[in-house]
């Protein structure tokens, strides 16, 4: 029962991480810039595939390393500067605050047309846009994916911490499995977008889907953060189920 609670916590955290929109939006920017270059069509299509693969690898490695770093942070803080209970309270409050922030501010409202413009400061958004346009080789695509995950940290940090708390409570063999599952699920929406584009959908279809489901995704993510906070509070602070 206890292991299922920990696994559930990790899976829930990963699903919420997968719902965050920055890596998906940056992947669309990468597609737009690479496919839009004045090459022959066949040339563009063959060029974009390895770039997208390396972008996905960058995202996956960043997720993997950040979860490992979060595990280290949680175990180091729990052993030293903060008690485990104080750390868990901090994570709970962070989740609760972010759930409200996502519902209110995840998408910008200043734009005159309905858009998927995110909370991200415009300086950072312009930086990612410029990086996507300047991506011509594989290391650049990899670093674009890696940096995109870092820019999302204000929202994803508590999800890494929650997953780390769950991960550290598992047996070592289960930890490896959970780490692998976490990484695969975190990049799943990007893989789906890639498959859709390869099967004939275009960027406008993808962006139309994002626009259509914008409010639903915002609600789902914000409410998901709230439910995860309640789940975390019940099992890790109140000790329901003997956790």
């Amino acid at each position: 029962m206890v292991s299922f609670v920990f696994l559930g916590l990790i899976l829930f955290g990963t699903l919420l991480l997968a719902l965050l929109q920055l890596p998906l939006g940056t992947l669309l920017l990468l597609y737009h810039s690479v496919l839009g270059r004045p090459n022959s069509r066949k040339n563009s299509a063959t060029k974009v595939r390895p770039l997208v693969s390396y972008y996905l690898a960058g995202v996956a490695l960043a997720d993997f390393l950040l979860l490992a770093a979060a595990c280290f942070l949680v175990s180091a803080l729990s052993a030293g500067a903060l008690s485990a209970t104080v750390l868990r309270y901090l994570i709970f409050l962070l989740l609760l605050g972010l759930s409200l922030f996502i519902l209110l501010f995840y998408y910008r409202r200043s734009s005159p047309v309905r858009s998927t413009e995110l909370w991200l400061p415009r300086l950072f958004a312009r930086f990612l846009d410029a990086r996507a346009k300047a991506t011509h080789n594989l290391p650049e695509a990899f670093s674009l994916g890696f940096s995109t995950v870092l820019f999302e940290l204000p929202f994803s940090l508590p999800l890494f911490l929650v997953s780390a708390v769950g991960l550290l409570s598992l047996t070592p063999s289960a930890q490896l499995l959970a780490l692998f599952l976490f990484t695969v699920l975190a990049v799943a929406p990007l893989l789906v977008l890639r498959l859709k584009i390869r099967s004939g959908k275009n960027l406008a279809d993808a962006q139309r889907w994002r626009l259509k489901n914008r409010d639903f995704l915002r609600f789902l993510t914000g409410f998901g953060f709230f439910v995860l906070a309640c789940f975390f509070f019940a099992f890790f602070l109140l000790g329901v189920g003997g956790v």
């Binding site: 929109q21 920055l22 939006g25 940056t26 669309l28 920017l29 737009h32 734009s111 047309v113 858009s115 998927t116 413009e117 995110l118 991200l120 958004a125 990612l128 846009d129 275009n202 960027l203 406008a204 962006q207 139309r208 626009l211």
Partner: peptide, 14 residues
């Protein structure tokens, strides 16, 4: 409609 959507959403993907 597709070009229109991309024009309206330029610089607004993220």
């Amino acid at each position: 409609p597709d070009l229109h959507l991309l024009y309206e959403n330029r610089n607004k993907f993220i």
